[in-house]
Simulated assay, not measured.
Amino acid sequence: MAKITLGGTPVETIGNLPEVGSQAPDFTLTASDLSIQKLSDFKGHKVVLNIFPSVDTGTCATSVRSFNKEAAEMKNTKVLCISRDLPFAQARFCGAEGLDNVVMLSDFKTGQFGKDYGLEFATGPFEGLDSRCVVVLDENGVVKYTEQVQEVADEPNYKASLEALLNE
């Protein structure tokens, strides 16, 4: 289990992110249009999983904007922004921001994604939500980079995650 902080207060996740070099677990999530999306739908593309508690918080919104601008411009790359937010909130945010280079996916139905990836908060006021993480996958779904952000209010290391894409 990862030990991180939320506003300086220690909290924990239920497990640890998948190991670099391992096959990423497939998932079933809900897209903004209420369709079902699986990781296997993106096979053949490099994938950035930008995972966060809620798009309605400043840092989470900034990460979506930043990945929309940076990684989405990279060839053969899909950026999947994943949270427990309802698909309606995700669609509203992207529409208001004019963001169309990321795929918003919701873990609201079962929370199974957060469990399978070991990143669901186990303690603290965000218990049950997905913690802030980045997971980078190659075209075959192999994990190339992971980051569990140590302080939930901090942004992920965009540079390191983008370099992992370039090193493919």
Rank of each mutant, 00 (worst) to 15 (best):
E70G: 09
A71P: 04
E73V: 00
E73H: 01
E73M: 07
E73P: 00
E73L: 11
E73R: 05
E73F: 01
K75C: 01
K75E: 15
N76D: 15
N76R: 09
T77L: 13
T77S: 15
V79A: 07
V79T: 04
C81P: 07
C81Y: 04
C81I: 07
I82G: 04
I82K: 10
S83I: 10
R84L: 08
D85E: 12
D85Y: 13
P87C: 12
F88H: 08
A89K: 10
A89Y: 05
Q90N: 13
Q90A: 15
A91F: 12
A91T: 12
R92T: 14
R92E: 12
F93C: 12
C94I: 03
C94F: 06
C94D: 06
C94E: 08
G95N: 15
G95S: 14
G95Y: 07
G95V: 01
A96L: 09
A96T: 05
A96I: 00
G98M: 10
L99M: 08
L99T: 05
D100E: 13
N101W: 03
V103L: 11
V103W: 09
S106F: 10
K109D: 01
G111V: 03
Q112K: 09
Q112P: 00
K115Y: 02
D116V: 01
D116F: 02
D116A: 14
Y117S: 02
Y117L: 04
L119T: 00
E120F: 00
E120W: 00
F121V: 05
F121D: 03
A122H: 11
A122W: 09
T123E: 01
F126K: 14
F126G: 00
E127C: 03
E127L: 02
L129G: 03
D130E: 04
D130T: 03
S131R: 08
S131V: 03
V134L: 01
V135L: 11
V136S: 04
V136G: 05
L137P: 09
L137F: 13
L137D: 09
L137T: 11
L137I: 15
D138C: 07
E139T: 12
E139R: 04
N140F: 01
V142D: 00
V143M: 05
K144D: 08
K144Y: 02
Y145K: 03
Y145E: 05
